[in-house]
Every structure is written in C-alpha cells, then in structure tokens.
Simulated assay, not measured.
Amino acid sequence: MNPKVAIIILNWNGWEDTIECLESVFQITYPLYEVIIVDNGSKDDSIQKIKNYAEGKIKIKSRFFHYLPENKPIYVREYSKDELDTSISIKENIKNPVSRKNLILIKNDDNYGFAEGNNIGIKFALNNLNSDYILLLNNDTVVDPYFLNELINVAESDLQIGVLGSTIYEYKNPQEIQSAGVKIHWNKGEVINLTQQESKYLDEPKNVDCVMGCALLAKSELFNKIGYLNKDYFAYLEETEWCVRAHKASYRIVYVPKGKIWHKGGATSNKITGFTLFHYTRNKFWFMKKHSSKQQYFSFLTYFFGFRAWMVIGGILYRQKSKEILPSFISFLKGIRDGVLT
C-alpha cells in the first residue's frame, strides 16, 4: 500500500504560476495523492481561472512538460473558510474515487500569510483526508514526475525521518541548484541554502538542519506532536522554526537529491515593497530568541548590528529604485523594532 499524500499549494493573486504548478503535479507518477489549493483572498480572478484550468479550458505552456488534455476535467470541490470553521466533517462530499483527479479549493476571506494559509490546508487534510504525509508546495514551482516517489521512498525507510526536502533548481536556469537542504549558522543567525557542491552531496539522502518551505514533505504525525507552523511569522522562516521543533522532538530532517523541482522564487513577496525586509528581519529575531542559546543570541546581536545591518542598508541604497529606498529602509527598521521588542 502506498501512503497517502496531501499536496497543499497556496495561491495569492498568482493563478498563472499556480496552474503551471498544478499541471506538473497532475502529471506525477506517484499513485495516491490529493491536491488542495488554499486561496488566500485573491483579488485577481484566481479562483475562476483555476476552475477553468480544471475544466480543460486553459492550456498550459511550459518548458518542463507537455500539456495533457486527457487528464481533464478535474473534479473541483470548493469550501469557504467559514464552512471549514464549522468543524463539520466533509469527508462524504469528496466523491471522486480517483484521488488524483480531485482538486480541493479552499477559499480564504483574507490573506492569512504563508504560515496560517498552509495551516488551514494542513488541518483540512488531517481532519478529512486521512493523509499519511503532508507536502507543502509553493505555487511558483514545477515538479519532476518522479519527485514524490523519491521523497516517499526515503521517508518510508526510517521511522525517525520526519521532514524531507528535494533538490530545488532555479526555474530560469534549470541546471543551477537553488537549494540542496538548509544549514543554520547559529552564531550569526543566518539560514543558508546549501548547493550540491558546497554540501558535497551526490545521490544519497543526507541529514540537514532544515529544508525550504517551497517543497517540504512531512509525516502527518508531526503536526499532532509539535504543532503547526507559527502563524505569527506570517511569511519567512516559519518552515525553519518548524523544522527546528521537529529536530528537538528527535526527528531527522533529510535532503533527498533525486527528488527534483524547479522554483521561480519571490513570485508573491516581490509584489509588495518592503514585505520581505520587514518579515524576514522581524522573524529572525523571534527565531533566535526562542531557539538559540544565550551565547549564540549574543553572538548574533553582535554580528547583526556590527555588520549585517549595514550590509542590508547598503543593499537598499544600491539595488532599490529611488522611490522604494525610503519605504524599504522603514520596513527594515520596523522589522528590527518588532523583532527586538515583541
């Protein structure tokens, strides 16, 4: 028996990326999965466009696959957040016996961020789908047809493996590795994406500190044991913080080289000036205060205010357009303020 996987894809005003991601997901070879789209209050007609795709009305063009009209229509079941909040079981409403032909569409009334948006999808999967695994997948990704097989094969090989990540390649440069697992430098508070060369990984799975949230597979049992993503983070470092909790609960976090996806990156956050600077800065302080030792936190503060902050300010002045410099600078300072004081 193959374990069942719930694939959760978060959408916010990004239907074009989302339907390309969906088409790649509906072409994977793994036999037992359900797909959940969580729409975070989009205002760009995303919901209707996604339904049009499911009906076969929108053909996808991509360098990574050929569009398959024969896997349409896809059965769409819609739920509002209010319906889910009633806590009434909706298992009987998911009627299509062929799970890979289902698309569950959860419509949030607002943008709850990456953390809580995914939490809503995770809770739905655990309460209604009896999923053995949860896969968090960014909408700006395209997946290899065999990537989920590779991840599940490794996950099933060891009961202590709780979280897994694939090799993440650059979408625009498909041979360039964006992440081969993640390493935390505690004395600097830096979360570094490893490359295959830096980490000396070949084909064998390796333990890592954490994996990128754009393609994170987790055993369902973890959410009952360590909780969900921290919704206060909203976006950035929430998957890192969650992986650290998993590690503290004695689970292995594993990078699987043969699982492959391609990631655009910044498709959502780049729409808002200062969004990344504020949330990443604030969350870094929160993360370090909660999980680092006193010595590590002091070292982090020394590094941040003595070096890193000035590098960020220099980057703002050098890279940003003139009209974006002041908003970006303010966002950075607000991130420091909220991170230190709350």
Rank of each mutant, 00 (worst) to 15 (best):
L103D: 09
D109P: 02
S269K: 04
Q296W: 01
N93R: 13
Y233E: 05
S331E: 03
Y201D: 06
L216D: 00
I226E: 07
N187V: 00
L136W: 00
G335T: 07
E221P: 00
I28Y: 05
H247W: 06
S199I: 08
E221Q: 13
V163C: 11
I28G: 01
Q27C: 09
D45H: 11
N52K: 14
S179L: 03
A180W: 00
F26M: 07
D209Y: 10
F223E: 04
D110F: 14
L317C: 07
C243H: 04
P174D: 06
I50N: 09
F147R: 04
I161E: 03
Y251E: 02
S299G: 09
K284N: 15
N283M: 09
G339W: 04
H185R: 07
K260V: 12
N71C: 05
V76T: 11
I192Y: 13
T195H: 06
F275P: 02
F26T: 05
Y236P: 09
F26P: 07
E16D: 14
I94H: 09
I94L: 15
V244R: 11
E204G: 00
F114D: 11
K289Q: 15
Y67R: 02
T29Q: 08
E83C: 00
I74C: 09
C214I: 15
S89P: 06
Y201Q: 13
A215N: 14
E239G: 01
K219E: 02
H279R: 12
D338M: 10
W186H: 05
V5F: 01
V5L: 00
D109V: 07
S250G: 01
A309F: 11
P257L: 03
A309E: 01
H263N: 07
Y303A: 07
F65I: 08
E55G: 08
D338G: 01
A125L: 04
T276D: 12
V38A: 08
D82G: 01
M311R: 12
K101I: 00
E190I: 15
K59Y: 08
N270T: 13
L216P: 00
G265R: 02
H291T: 15
M311L: 13
V142M: 10
N13S: 13
D85Y: 12
A6S: 15
K284V: 13
E176N: 12
K200Q: 14
G335D: 06
Q175P: 00
Y169H: 10
R100C: 08
I60T: 12
E221H: 04
G259N: 05
W286R: 15
K323W: 08
N283P: 10
Y112A: 06
L137G: 00
G113E: 01
E70T: 14
Q196H: 04
F278P: 02
G56A: 08
L222H: 06
D158V: 03
N138H: 14
L317R: 10
I192F: 11
K123A: 12
I7T: 02
K59N: 11
P257K: 04
N128E: 14
Q160I: 03
G121D: 05
Q178T: 03
E92D: 13
T276K: 11
N130L: 05
F278D: 02
D45N: 14
G14W: 09
Y79Q: 10
A54W: 01
